[in-house]
Simulated assay, not measured.
Amino acid sequence: MQILEFDSLPSTQIYLATQIKSGHLKPPICVWAKKQSAGIGSRGQVWESVNEALTFSFACVMDTNTPKQSLSLYFGYLFKQTLHALGHQEVWLKWPNDLYVGEAKVGGVMSQIYKDMVICGIGLNICADQHAALAVCAKEALQAFLERIETAPKWAEVFKAYKQDFERTHSGQFFKHESGLISLSTAKMHPDGGLEIAGQVYHALR
């Protein structure tokens, strides 16, 4: 996959989505910014800048076997696997799209769909004074991840592996919903990546 490297961008996600929609760029393509001044976080919030981070977005043709609402979970799990392969076994993926080390968030994933394409952005704190971070080589992690998605497994395989992770790591966790904080201690995962809690099914909207 071709990588377009920038010293700085306001947001790799906005830049790539704009270029894809205008026809100036076509998938597969990745945009990597060494600095990001107005990154987008979960629920449209601003991703706060840190001393050093890996921030990139990529576009590829969507695999129709992967549930649309679980694209961030799918790519987030593949990124987590990449970090594990680089020796960072402590990283885990909190449902549906946050990367954690212990109880601290170190990164996140967001996805959007345009026609038959998925545009996915990933941010990972590498060095930060007031936030958790993971000391990785940005270029090495990016290249290893892009190599992984070129031969990415099917959704069913990722779902099976993530479901086992989820049952091990989420018993004391919560997620933010418009109705407030919801406990994940009794959540059951559906095959499409949704969670059933007390009879209510929740899907990721990121």
Rank of each mutant, 00 (worst) to 15 (best):
Q2E: 13
L9M: 09
L9T: 02
Q19C: 05
Q19W: 09
G23F: 14
G23D: 03
H24Q: 13
H24K: 12
K34E: 07
K34G: 06
K35I: 03
Q36N: 08
G39E: 03
I40C: 06
R43P: 00
G44F: 10
Q45A: 11
Q45G: 01
W47M: 03
E52D: 15
L54N: 07
S57Q: 08
V61P: 00
K68L: 11
Q69P: 05
Y74M: 09
G76V: 05
L83T: 04
L86A: 02
H88R: 08
Q89N: 04
Q89E: 14
P96V: 10
P96F: 09
G102K: 01
M110I: 13
S111L: 02
Q112W: 04
Q112R: 13
I119L: 03
N125S: 04
L134W: 11
A135R: 13
L142K: 08
A144K: 11
F145M: 02
L146Q: 06
L146Y: 00
I149N: 03
I149R: 01
V158S: 02
A161T: 14
A161P: 01
A161F: 07
Q164V: 14
R168W: 05
E178S: 13
L181K: 07
A187H: 03
K188A: 10
H190A: 12
P191W: 14
P191K: 14
D192V: 01
L195M: 09
I197A: 06
A204T: 12
R206L: 06
